[in-house]
Amino acid sequence: MATRTRRSQRRTEALSRERIVEAAVELLDTVGESGLTFRALTERLATGTGAIYWHVANKDELLGAATEAVVGAALAVEPVAPTTPAAPADSPPDEIRAVALGLFEAIDDHPWLATQLATQLSRSPWGSVTPRIFDSIGRRVRALGVPEDGWFTATSALVHYVLGAAGQNAANSRADGPPKDRAEFLDDVATAWEELDPDDYPFARAVAGQLRDHDDREQFLAGLDLVLAGITALHPPSKPTHPPHTP
């Protein structure tokens, strides 16, 4: 009995929380949230449920840990190349673009992530994920020169744009029904818009061609630049003051 207990303890120690979360992310990516069960997890990890419960109390905790792991990796990104040759490398706007693009690509790669982030924001904003995203973007907002009384509003605008646009993009690419090639899907939508009544939908008809040809990533970054431009226009960075020159 003592020998079996020691072996069980060694197996539990070898099965780390990190490995469990990694396996949970793999399951979420392949079979979705409904397929993430402790039974499926034990089969993937070739272990017993007790070893998993040693590290994770329930499915909600597991989903939260998986979300935190993916978001943490997404935020550990390199700055996006400056949009203009004159822009300095690693400037706050470029760092914000890097953070935003990291989240955009993470949500695109992990179909379940958008729903989990929305849940985290609305139901448990005191958890680790929401403040981590706000802090990552907010520190760059502060570096833009935004005054302190505008930090929360400016950061909230960026966070909601990034998560909303990325979530909508992911939803569009995984709509219900048979999977379609992206170009075919956009062509179908654009064609439908072009056939709308010109009196009722003049704008939708006018931009149908742009819808057909647009690039999701480029459009996302262009929208982000619009938000950043609005923030910097409302809160232009203060110019440094220099002492008067004395001969």
Rank of each mutant, 00 (worst) to 15 (best):
Met1Cys: 12
Ala2Trp: 08
Arg6Met: 14
Arg6Glu: 14
Ser8Lys: 14
Arg10Val: 11
Thr12Gly: 14
Thr12Ser: 13
Glu13Arg: 10
Ala14Asn: 02
Ser16Leu: 06
Val21Gln: 03
Val21Met: 07
Val25Pro: 03
Glu26Trp: 01
Glu26Ala: 06
Asp29Cys: 13
Gly35Ile: 13
Thr37Asp: 10
Thr42Glu: 15
Thr42Tyr: 05
Ala46Val: 01
Thr49Cys: 12
Gly50Thr: 14
Ile52Asp: 02
Tyr53Ile: 02
Tyr53Arg: 13
Trp54Glu: 12
His55Thr: 09
Ala57Leu: 11
Leu62Lys: 04
Ala66Asp: 03
Thr67Leu: 09
Thr67Ile: 05
Thr67Gly: 10
Val71Gly: 11
Gly72Val: 04
Ala73Asn: 13
Pro79Gln: 07
Val80Asn: 11
Ala81Arg: 10
Ala81His: 09
Ala81Trp: 02
Thr83Val: 13
Thr84Ala: 15
Thr84His: 15
Ala87Met: 05
Pro88Asn: 01
Glu95Phe: 01
Arg97Met: 07
Arg97Pro: 01
Ala100Ile: 01
Gly102Thr: 06
Phe104Asn: 09
Ala106Gly: 03
Asp108Trp: 04
Pro111Leu: 01
Pro111Val: 03
Trp112Gln: 11
Gln116Cys: 09
Gln116Arg: 10
Leu117Pro: 07
Leu117Phe: 06
Gln120Asp: 13
Gly127Lys: 09
Gly127Arg: 08
Gly127Gln: 09
Gly127Met: 07
Thr130Phe: 04
Thr130His: 03
Thr130Lys: 02
Pro131Gly: 09
Pro131Thr: 11
Arg132Cys: 05
Phe134Pro: 00
Ile137Asn: 05
Ile137Ala: 07
Arg139Trp: 14
Val146Tyr: 07
Pro147Phe: 03
Pro147Ala: 10
Trp151Ala: 00
Phe152Trp: 01
Thr153Met: 00
Ala154Gln: 00
Thr155Arg: 01
Ser156Lys: 00
Val159Thr: 02
Val162Ser: 01
Val162Ile: 06
Val162His: 00
Leu163Trp: 00
Ala165Tyr: 03
Ala165Asn: 08
Ala171Asp: 15
Ala171Trp: 07
Asn172Ser: 15
Ser173Gly: 12
Arg174Phe: 12
Ala175Met: 09
Ala175Phe: 02
Asp176Leu: 04
Pro178Phe: 08
Pro178Asp: 09
Pro178Ala: 12
Lys180Leu: 14
Asp181Glu: 15
Asp181Tyr: 07
Asp181Arg: 11
Ala183Ile: 10
Ala192Trp: 04
Ala192Val: 03
Asp197Phe: 11
Asp197Thr: 12
Pro198Ala: 08
Pro198Ser: 05
Asp199Gly: 14
Tyr201His: 12
Pro202Val: 08
Ala204Ser: 15
Val207Gly: 05
Ala208Ile: 07
Gly209Ala: 14
Gln210Gly: 14
Asp213Ala: 11
Asp213Asn: 11
Asp213Pro: 05
His214Ser: 13
Arg217Phe: 03
Glu218Pro: 03
Leu221Met: 02
Ala222Leu: 06
Gly223Gln: 02
Gly223Phe: 00
Asp225Arg: 03
Leu226Tyr: 12
Val227Ile: 13
Leu228Asn: 01
Ala229Phe: 06
Ala229Tyr: 05
Ile231Ala: 00
Thr232Gly: 03
Thr232Ser: 05
Ala233Gln: 10
Leu234Gly: 03
His235Ser: 08
His235Cys: 05
Pro237Leu: 06
Ser238Asp: 13
Thr241Phe: 15
Thr241Ala: 15
Thr241His: 15
Thr241Asn: 15
His242Gly: 11
Thr246Gln: 13
Thr246Trp: 09
Pro247His: 04
